[in-house]
Structures are given as C-alpha cells and as structure tokens.
C-alpha cells in the first residue's frame, strides 16, 4: 500500500477547507428569490456592463504599457528608466490597494485635475479604468517581459543588420513572437481588473448605475442586508472568473500542441 506523506495529509483537507469550501458556500446559498431579484435589478446589469467594459480597457492599456516595458527590457535594459519601471512593477503587488486608490485620488482628483470637472477625474468610469490598470499592469508586464526574455536575441541582431531600426525590429520580429504572451497578459489583466475592489472604490467611487462594478455591487448589497442578491452577484463573478481561467488553460494547451506539432 502506498505510504501517504505528511504533505498530502496537510494539503488535501486544508485545500478543501480554505479554498473550495468558501466557493461552495457561495454556490450553496444561491436562492431562486435572490436570482430573480438580482437579474431583474437594472443596477446589477449596469454593474456587469461597467465591470466588463472598464476591465476590457484596463487590460488593453495594461498590455500596451507592458509592450512598452518589454521594449525597454530588450533594447535599453541598462537605463535608469528601465530600472525604475522594473522596480515599480512589484510595488502595486505589495501595496494595499486602498493606498493605491488614495494615491490615484490625490494625483488625478480635483486638487490636480480640477479643470477636468468638479471632482477631477475621480468618480468617473475613466477613474475605474485607471484604478484597475494600476493593479493589473504589473501582471501583464511580468507576463510579457518573461516571454520576451525567451526570444533569441540573435533574431533581433539579424533584423537590425537587415535594415530594421529597434522599433521596426520590435514590431516585425518581437511583437509577433509575443502573441501568446500578449493574449495571456490581456486575460490576466482582465481577470485582475474584474476582481479589483479597494482601488476602484477609493478612486472610482461606488455610484450605482454610474461607476459601480460587480465587486462594489456585492459590497453594497451586503451592507444593505440583501445577502441573497449579494450571493447571486458573487456567483455571477465566480462564473466569469471560471470562464476566464478555463479560457487561459485552453489557450495554453492549444499553444503547447501547436509548438509540439511544429
């Protein structure tokens, strides 16, 4: 009989207790009444729309910025700009997201951006996008830069000797080879954006139908004592997250298969 190790004894029950059980607790508390009320609530659908649209633009901006970071990584790794950008990539991971939200509020709120409106950029959908971007960009940057690291530098050298300037070599050689990483960076950035709460609520606010996203909708419903609606909205979030994870896994498998057949 196979001997069971201490790691297995520790891992399996703790995994079920701490990871799966809370998810199941949400799913187990879904009620028909909660579903009917939530799905008939136009504010819920506004929050869904806001979440998907702002997360899409935050992920898009994250990927574009990550491609800029990867450009510095490939062509100017010794510069001070690259070093600062590389160091700062880890900061949003370690920073409490309320602090990130406050930082954005002070930087783009009415104090500095009063000309843009009574609250500056704060409490608008653009603020939601910027808050999501602030926390999702490092993930996209890490994903794309680590893939750029694997690209054979001789390819870039050859492209240069064939007449490409660095931006041309980046566009014609590097970006096409980063295709899968760009896609993964986008999906990861999108997932991270959807899950963001603290920075969004600090900078974007929680105005129902205006800047409220799914995460803040759930929070509001719990505060209002509408637990059945909060549970339904949470289950909806879990469904979106599971679809994203499945999407990433499927894409990873397809890529591995195409690499193998090549």
């Amino acid at each position: 009989m196979r001997k069971v190790s201490t790691w297995e004894v520790l891992f399996v029950p703790l995994f079920f207790l701490l990871i799966l059980y809370p998810i199941l607790a949400i799913l187990g508390n879904i009620t028909l009444e909660g579903m009917v009320r939530t799905f008939n609530d136009p504010i819920f659908w506004d929050a869904v729309k806001n979440t998907l649209v702002t997360a899409f633009f935050a992920a898009l901006l994250s990927v574009l910025m990550a491609l800029g970071f990867a450009y510095f990584y490939i062509f100017h790794p010794g510069t001070i700009i690259y070093r600062i950008a590389d160091f700062m990539n880890d900061l949003p991971i370690a920073l409490p997201h309320t602090v990130a939200g406050l930082a954005l509020l002070l930087a783009f709120g009415r104090n500095m951006f009063g000309f843009a409106g009574p609250t500056g950029l704060a409490f608008t959908l653009l603020a939601v996008v910027l808050a999501m971007f602030f926390v999702s960009y490092p993930l996209a940057a890490r994903t794309i830069a680590s893939s750029a690291e694997e690209i054979d530098r001789e390819m870039i050298s050859v492209a240069r000797t064939l007449g490409d300037s660095p931006p041309q070599a980046y566009r014609r050689v590097v970006i096409p080879l980063l295709g899968e990483a760009i896609f993964s960076g986008f999906v990861l950035g999108f997932s991270r954006s959807i899950s963001e709460f603290a920075a969004v609520i600090m900078f974007g606010g929680n105005v129902p139908g205006m800047t409220q996203v799914l995460a803040s909708y759930v929070f509001t419903k719990v505060e209002e004592g509408e637990v059945s609606m909060a549970v339904t909205a949470s289950a909806f979030c879990i469904l979106i997250s599971l679809l994203l994870v499945l999407f990433l896994r499927l894409e990873g498998k397809l890529h591995a298969r195409s690499e193998k057949s090549a």
Binding site: D152, E154, M155, S157, V158, R160, T161, L162, S165, L177
Partner: peptide, 20 residues
C-alpha cells in the same frame, strides 16, 4: 554606425531565422 546602417550580411550561430 548602427547595425542597420552597415550593410553587413550576418549569419549567426543558430541561424536566427524568424520562426513566425
């Protein structure tokens, strides 16, 4: 001069072919 301005044909060790 930059590499793109040298008109030097270059074949590296691992061929450096653009695999895409």
């Amino acid at each position: 001069s930059l590499p793109e301005d040298r008109l030097l044909g270059y074949v590296p060790q691992n061929t450096g072919l653009f695999r895409h």
